[in-house]
Each structure stands twice: as structure tokens, then as C-alpha cells.
Amino acid sequence: MKPSLLWVAAFGAVLILLPQVIGSAYYVNLCSQILIAAILASSLNILVGFGGLTSLGHAAYAGTAAYFTVYLSAHAGFGYLAGAVMAVAGTTAMALLFGLLALRASGLGFLMITLALGQILWGIAYRWVSLTGGDNGLGGFTRPQPFGIDLADPAAFYYFALVVFGLALFAIHRFMHSPFGQSLQGTRDQPRRMSALGYNVRSIQLLSFVYAGFWGAVAGLLYAYYHQFVSPHVLHLTTSAETLLMVIAGGAGTLFGPVVGAALVVILKNVASAYIARWMMLLGAVFVAIVLFMPDGLVPGVSRLFRRFRNTRRTAMKNTEPDAAALPPTLGKRSA
């Protein structure tokens, strides 16, 4: 526990100093995009990593919240705060409805239903032109100025996103080690056993679905503030797939996996689009490669390597028994 706390502190310090170090507005903005993507990926991780519920429609929550907040604040005359609250509440309610439907099935059926629901939302955004502006999207939205801080400034926005990111990650960290989070992980591994132990598996999954939808909505809010514009693209299957890729590439079921995955995908996307126009193809290829060659994701893969490296060094130095690498994990790392 203690060394990991140290890591978190160091990581936090780097994130706080980042805008000072890089300076360039372009890269600060890129970092903001990563933070937003990381919140969305972390929220999906609640379902995929802890619940074993692979959703291919998670863009629905970010997208709906983004549409809601832009529409409410820029077109329906609500204030920023009211718009934001209503957007998150409305999206969370929608997550409840979608969860009720998708959890009628499990496994591949769940995946297909989430995908279909997500695509229906995309279709609404694309076709219901009078409300959503269709392919042109909804604009006319500007960043708010809470407490006189102008979020139009890249660094200010970065810190704003960082605070929300910190809150989200802390909440998900608590969730993952909480009785409820541990129950969810139990339903992932042994659903039948869990109901025999007195857990209502469907309620646990449904509440987790709603919780994931809530944090997805928060990410969508930031997305809307960042882009000051929303178009059907945010609801597209590609966005859902990118988000899922972040979770899987980084490491589903770990706290930092989706964050690393988000950084990777966002950077890759920006770098790639600067040189080639074939982002979709690259995305597809990365998808196939990750699934084939690194199904556990980067964070578990790398930390396994790191552990092995440390253990072999320790073995070499202290010359203890060669079984050191196979020592059982201690209580503190229970849910790693």
C-alpha cells in the first residue's frame, strides 16, 4: 500500500506540473483530451473490468450528456450549472433504462444489445436534424467561467479536467475496493455462487451499469466543454470501440490500465492523423494486435515483467529460494 501511495503522489505531481513543463497550448490541450478520454475509459472499466460486462455502446453516455448540456445551455436557455446537472441526471436515467434492457442478456447478447442501443442513439443524433443539427452538430457553446476562472485558457481547462479526473479516479478506486465493488467482481467470476451467497446479481450489475453511465456522462460534460461543440461522431460506434480499446489495451480491471490506454490511444490518434489519413485502419489493426498478442493489456503485462525483474534481482542478491516469484499476494494487494 505504502509504495503505491508514493507512486500516486509522484504521478499526481507530474500531472500538476505538466502544463508548466510543456508550455505549448497544443500539447496542453492534448493532455486535456487524454484526461477526458481517461475518465470515459475508467467508467467503462467499471463494467468491463470489474463486472465482466463488455459493452460496445459506452459512447452513448458521453455523447448523450454532451448533447444535453450543449442543447440545454446554449439553445434552451439554461445556465451552465443547471444544464450540467440536468445532462448528468438525464444521462444517468438513460443508463438505467439501457441497463435494464441490456442486462436481459449476458455475454455476447449484452454486447450486441449495447452496440445496437448505441447505434440507435447515433441514428437519432444524425437524423433528427431539427433537434440535433444532424451531421453538422450543435455548436454555439462556450466554456464556462466558474469563480471567475476563464476555462477558455488551455491550462485553466487542463486543471479543471484534472480535478474532475482526480475525483473520478478516486471514486473508482474506492469503488473497486468497496464491499459493493468486490461484490461486482464476485458476480464477474462466479455469478451463480454469488446469488447462492445472497447477492442479487442483477441488481448489482444494474447499479454498476448506472454508475458507469454516471461517470460516462461526466466525461461527456467535459467533452462538450472542451470542444464547445457536439456532433454525431461522439456517439458513433468508433468512439465506443476506441473507449473499449483503451480499457483492454491498458488493462481491464486495473485502476490505471484505462488511463494508460487512454493516453496511448489519444496520442496514437493525434500522431497518426498528422501523418496518415488512415486512423480507422490503424485502430482496427491495433485492436486485432492487442487481442491476439496482449489480451491482458499493458499495465498487467508490464507490471508482471517488472515484478519478475525485481524478484530475480532480489533472488540474485539475497540468494533466497527460487520460489520467491511465486509467493502468494498479500492481503493488501487483494484486488490487484
Binding site: G107, A241, L283, G284, F287
Partner: peptide, 24 residues
């Protein structure tokens, strides 16, 4: 075939291939 018995991985691969084909 390499992913036999792992339906989730199979689905993700087919999605990746879908993106590649669409872009191609």
C-alpha cells in the same frame, strides 16, 4: 481459430477487422 473458446476476444477481433475493411 487461435481464439477458439474465447468469444469476447473473437468479437473484438471481428470489430477490428470491420474497421480495417471499412477504411480500406
Amino acid at each position: 481459430r487461435r481464439l477458439a473458446g474465447r468469444p469476447l476476444q473473437q468479437v473484438l477481433v471481428t470489430l477490428g477487422i470491420a474497421f480495417i475493411i471499412a477504411d480500406a
